[in-house]
Design a binder for these strands. Structure first.
Length: 530
DNA sequence: CCCTGTTTAGCGTCAC
DNA sequence: GTGACGCTAAACAGGG
């Protein structure tokens, strides 16, 4: 038995999430039905919510702010993924699922040319039918042909106007039940997610920017602008990605430099897609390899590290980096006993998870450069002030040029223009995405707070499926997290549980007892929940 | 000085 | 194992 603090606070919360999910499975395996499990898991949501609230800390990140909640879910998702084999499919889990995300290899290819869409500010504008190029049909037969996985109409969720979504369909089969609801199988909201690096190659990003431009040619700064506007990751990332963009433009035969005319003001030349390679691009010949599970923005990571410095050291024995959430020894004991009994943390190391959350960027990234030049690592790129999209990247004329850029594509025009060497796009709202809501996509989980019915504090979780055959296990487990966070908390029971985690001490006895208490009359509970 | 553009180098991943 | 591809990093030069 351990004595004293077993895990960091965040690890406790992650472990708790994980444990709760496991408990949900055990309830189910004990004869419960899908909805029963869901109802129980759903009700655990508030426990987590309150735990997260107790961990609240100042969030200095103005755009796409990073909260501990995200961190928790990030690590939880990773932990769940590592241990995904313990959950088996069999439930009809679709009823409560708003959307599932399939982030498979298709997303990493140039298939974005067929599938990519960024929701503009005007949501109804997205609803109209968009023809698919090359006769490809969306996997969701009853979903709009437009690749609008983020379309609120298709996923059944409210979407704040202006909330962009980069979505791609997957080649993999969608989960049963999801399609039946007309939900697209996947959604990755890279536009508001500063945590996960988009799985698009730089060449793809450049192409996207070019396609999104009205012009047949585009400046480098416009490419930067489009990328930062449409991929939140790059807004906060070390600006070295721009070097890669330039490198790609110069090296990739697909891109042709168009020198600026002498009478044209501005700096630098223009770039366009070589028609000779346009078809190859469109056919998806260029792929980006699979991304690491989670690429945490180092800049965000650094800020998180700062934010999570101990703020107070009360009666709890907090170690460095921990914040004011205390787990009483009894709860720790119970937690560990539970984990030991269930074997739930066979492959899960809270410290590892914590490291993943905060300190593993170089490890996760695993690029050669870091190994090659350790001294370069001391550059501490995370410390560099990230370039903001609002920075004066663009000259006046370039601002005018970037104005008509948008993220919604006319695919017919795209095909015609790309193959003919002309890029065009019909007009639309300007590129100036405003992040109005916190959003997060972690491998397997996309979280975007949405407006919830009165009396609820709802967090909308979209679940991304894994790409291969293990999808069912992962989906099951991830959906569990989805349901856990998704359903509203019954108001009539709100009162009685206010004391669970509103203080800085988490009593896991109560937490577990809650699960037992919920094994009662489920029929009444499901009515309340649904 | 900063941005742009080119080039080189090394490494990782993946398909074959 | 090998090659293709992609990414990162860096050096360097030229222009505004």
């Amino acid at each position: 038995m351990h004595t004293g603090p077993l895990f960091s606070n965040r690890a406790i919360i992650v472990l708790s999430v994980r444990t709760l999910l496991k408990l949900g499975v055990y309830f189910l395996s004990g004869g419960g039905t899908g909805w029963r499990r869901r109802s129980w898991v759903t009700e655990k949501r508030e426990v987590l919510d309150r735990a997260m609230l107790s961990l609240s800390c100042a969030d200095p990140w103005p755009e796409g702010s990073v909260g501990l909640e995200e961190e928790v879910v990030t690590a939880a998702a990773q932990a769940e993924e590592r241990d995904s084999g313990s959950i088996h499919s069999g439930d009809n889990i679709s009823s409560g699922c708003s959307s599932l995300v399939n982030l498979d290899d298709s997303l990493t290819s140039l298939q974005w040319l067929q599938e990519f869409s960024i929701l503009g500010a005007n949501v109804p504008q997205q609803v109209h039918h968009q023809p698919h190029l090359f006769g490809h049909q969306p996997l969701c037969s009853d979903a709009p042909a437009s690749p609008l996985a983020g379309d609120p109409a298709s996923i059944g969720m409210p979407l704040t106007p202006g909330k962009p979504t980069a979505a791609a369909y997957s080649r993999m089969q969608p989960l049963p039940g999801i399609v039946a609801h007309g939900h697209c199988p996947d959604e990755v909201d890279y536009k508001t997610n500063a945590h996960i690096k988009p799985p698009y190659s730089y060449a793809t990003l450049i192409c996207m920017a070019m396609q999104a431009s009205k012009k047949s040619k585009i400046t480098l700064s416009c490419i930067y602008k489009w990328i930062t506007d449409n991929f939140c990751y790059y807004r906060h990332a070390d600006p070295t990605w721009q070097n890669s963009i330039r490198h790609n433009l110069s090296l990739n035969k697909c891109f042709i430099k168009v020198p600026r005319q002498k009478d044209e003001p501005g700096k630098g030349g223009f770039w366009k897609i070589d028609p000779q390679y346009a078809e190859r691009l469109l056919s998806g010949a260029y792929k980006k390899r699979r991304m690491p599970p989670v690429q945490i923005n180092p800049a965000l990571q650094n800020r998180l590290r700062v934010n999570l410095q101990p703020q107070s050291r009360g009666p709890c024995n907090l170690t460095g980096g921990q914040i004011g959430l205390c787990i009483n020894p009894e709860s720790q004991r119970l937690l560990q006993e539970f984990e030991e009994a269930t074997g739930a943390d066979q492959n899960w190391d809270p410290h590892l998870a914590e490291g993943t959350m905060l300190g593993s960027w170089p490890v996760v990234r695993g690029r050669g450069g870091l190994k090659r030049k350790q001294s370069v690592g001391s550059r501490n790129s995370a410390i560099k002030a990230p370039r903001r999209s609002s920075s004066p990247l663009l000259s006046v004329d370039e601002h005018k040029e970037i104005g008509p850029l948008k993220g919604d594509f006319d695919w017919d025009a795209l095909l015609d223009s790309a193959l003919s060497g002309e890029l065009s796009l019909e007009g639309g709202e300007p590129l100036s995405p405003i992040m109005k809501e916190e959003d997060l996509t972690v491998r397997g989980t996309h979280i975007c707070p949405v407006e919830a019915p009165a009396g609820t504090a709802d967090i909308h979780v979209l679940v991304e499926t894994q790409r291969s055959n293990d999808v069912s296990d992962f989906d099951e487990e991830t959906f569990l997290a989805t349901a856990f966070l998704e359903s509203p908390w019954p108001e009539e029971e709100e009162q009685g549980r206010n004391d669970f985690l509103c203080s800085s001490t988490v009593n896991l006895d109560q937490l577990f007892d809650l699960g037992d208490s919920l094994s009662g009359d489920p029929s009444t509970r499901i009515d309340t929940l649904l």
